[in-house]
């Protein structure tokens, strides 16, 4: 079964090389590439992807707001964040917006393929860095006695799947 992937990134170069890269994989097909949040909402309606790879930093409306809109409009859609930054705030906001995973730009290409496949299967792909941060946030939250259980990935569908785990 082929996974329909849509990309959202405001950097033309990144969009272009990702399309080329993902097109090499037999089980993935890139059905669209949007440059900003409004375009992504419009495009999802027409191309009906299984997985959206969403950049966090987008002009005007950011990727987190776009994710919130997309998951509300299409509850079965899987959105994976792909950003060059990774911070507790970004992780928490993405999770609350309904993203199923968080990948970091510049990690090996295999991790990206793996992440998209995991998301398509209903898993929670997290890059090594994001997964470590999640665990640390969750642990310290539990120690402080006030864990936001709803925002923790484990409460919504198991522990984050680190890349490399099947």
């Amino acid at each position: 079964m082929v996974t329909r992937v849509m990309l959202v990134d405001d950097h033309r170069l990144v969009r272009e090389v990702l399309v080329e890269l993902l097109s090499q994989e037999q089980d993935l097909t890139v059905v669209g590439a949007a440059a900003d949040a409004p375009e992504s909402v419009e495009m999802v309606r027409t191309v009906l992807p299984d997985v959206v790879v969403m950049d966090v930093h987008l002009p005007e409306v950011d990727g987190i707001a776009a994710t919130r809109a997309l998951t509300r409009l299409h509850p079965t859609l899987k959105v994976v964040m792909l950003s060059s930054s990774c911070s507790p705030t970004l992780l928490k906001d993405s999770d609350e917006a309904g993203a199923c995973g968080y990948l970091v730009k510049g990690d090996p290409a295999d991790e990206l393929f793996h992440g998209i496949r995991t998301a398509a299967r209903g898993g929670r792909p997290f890059s090594t860095q994001a997964a470590a941060l999640w665990r640390s946030m969750h642990d310290s939250g539990a120690r402080q006695g006030a864990p936001k259980v709803r925002s923790a990935p484990s409460a919504r569908g198991g522990a984050p799947d680190s890349p490399g785990e099947e």
């Binding site: 950097h11 170069l13 990144v14 890269l21 090499q24 060059s84 730009k105 510049g106």
Partner: peptide, 18 residues
């Protein structure tokens, strides 16, 4: 750095496997 060098280098990471 974020919009320039980092994006370009990320692009490079995705270009080289292709």
């Amino acid at each position: 750095l974020h919009h320039g060098v980092v994006q370009d280098l990320a692009g490079l990471v995705y270009t080289l496997p292709t």
